[in-house]
Design a protein around this nucleic acid. Structure first.
Lengths: 161, 161
DNA sequence: TATTGTTATACTCTATAACTATA
DNA sequence: TATAGTTATAGAGTATAACAATA
């Protein structure tokens, strides 16, 4: 955690205490957790010179080398134009490379370099430790429930979104 | 949803199927949901000319008018320098105003203008509808459980972060 | 000395539109 | 015509450091 970014000391108006629906309270708690979680994980990645988005790219390619930029854009839920800049950066860093597709000369397929794979493996343990420390507060039964709920919620997001 | 940002059609390597710990699977599902959720809610706010961060400011001030910029920074988990830009924008839009603190001439306290309060009230129903549509997939019992777990996870983030 | 807010600078991520080269 | 990737442009958010005014 950077020195200028401290955690709140004083109690501020807590939205969670509102007399609102449980849907709303859960959503607010989700958004607040999102901010915290993102920052926790980002701080852990900064030591490796990685942003969360870049780590996301590495992890995606770790599990599915050779996808196209368009597919990565759909997976990350960003536009293909965004993927260009994202890949430009990780390619400049030497972690990912674009290779022409022999069958369709329009497409470029993305592959991890050895350095990228190595970095992914190096950065993962720290992320795992953080995740263990945070999510380890819940029992395995709770984690299973949570996982199920999150998957259903994501499905709801995708369908109507 | 913008026309160039489509939802994924093809099945891509799904990290959730990894033979990993439930902590990890839950975390991955959480991060994916949070990305989706952010985009859903952002898209809903764009119609009102608001970003999620700006709506967050309005909602915070709705429930706690008169906080200082430093307090807002701690609440939003960003640096005070970031708050300057954030408030510059919502102040320029006429939704928030800075007022000098009579007791401490260093601090500036933040207040919603009438326009800001009106906008917050106008933008809220759409957000509520979205939240209802997504989180309404879960039963009230599940939502209570989820809420409890999210609060515990956020606490875990804050403590060790 | 410490704190509040500010300015200055730079980088990442994102959205949009127009463009190219292929198909 | 449609698609994959690119370029160009703009704006928002963030991190960092140095600064002014005040306590």
């Amino acid at each position: 955690m950077s020195p200028t970014r401290k955690s709140a000391k004083r109690e501020l108006p807590v939205l969670n205490d509102d007399p609102r629906s449980w849907e709303f309270r859960a959503a607010v708690a989700m958004l607040r957790l999102q901010g915290r979680l993102e920052r926790c994980l980002s701080d852990g990645l900064a030591a490796h010179g990685l942003t969360l988005a870049q780590f996301d790219v590495l992890m995606t390619l770790c599990h599915g080398d050779g996808i196209t930029q368009q597919e990565l854009a759909e997976w990350l839920l960003v536009t293909k134009a965004n993927v260009v800049g994202l890949i430009d950066r990780v390619e400049a860093a030497g972690w990912v490379e674009r290779r022409a597709d022999p069958d369709d000369r329009r497409v470029k397929r993305l592959y991890l370099t050895n350095a990228g794979r190595k970095l992914a493996r190096k950065a993962q343990p720290g992320q795992h430790t953080l995740i263990q420390r945070i999510f380890g507060r819940l029992s395995e039964a709770e984690l299973r429930q949570l996982h199920g709920m999150l998957v259903r919620l994501e499905k709801a997001c995708s369908e109507g979104g």
